[in-house]
């Protein structure tokens, strides 16, 4: 069953705009910033990640009782897939959210990245996933 009330659309839009705005204002959609992060030269950016994860962790463990709703499962794709993603992120400065933020900021080159992302997802879902048959822990995936 799918809940598609107006409230759901509103919440998704609000959270999307908030996330896009935070990533933009935080400098995460700026290739120079991200590249310097990966060269371990951008201490403020490192602290953004460490801080965000650290504070989220505190939040999850103190405020939220059922925090293990929908956790991901390790399988033989976890490491190779993540390595591929890391390389792609270093090449484009984008992860799946940032590419959209880059576009919103007017960085038209992000359109190429997005075409790449959609192609990559399509290839995985239509060709690789059926042949790999990895156990993702979710029915029908």
């Amino acid at each position: 069953m799918q809940n598609t009330s107006i409230k759901q659309y509103f919440l998704h839009a609000l959270l999307g705009i908030a996330m896009g705005l935070i990533l933009s204002l935080g400098g995460l959609a700026d290739f120079k910033q991200v590249h310097e992060l990966f060269l371990l030269q951008n201490i403020p950016m490192l602290l953004v990640f460490a801080g965000a994860i650290g504070l989220s962790m505190i939040g999850f463990f103190t405020l939220i009782k059922d925090r293990n709703r929908a956790t991901k499962k390790y399988n033989s794709g976890t490491i190779p897939g993540s390595i591929m993603f890391g390389v792609g992120w270093a090449m484009t400065g984008a992860c799946p959210s940032i590419a959209l933020v880059q576009l919103g900021e007017g960085q038209l080159a992000a359109l190429v990245t997005i075409v790449g992302i959609i192609s990559g997802i399509w290839i995985y879902r239509k060709i690789a996933a059926p042949s790999f048959q990895l156990d993702t822990g979710v029915c029908g995936e």
Partner: peptide
């Protein structure tokens, strides 16, 4: 790079 992100 985008394809690596999408696929990865």
């Amino acid at each position: 790079g985008g394809m690596l992100v999408g696929f990865g």
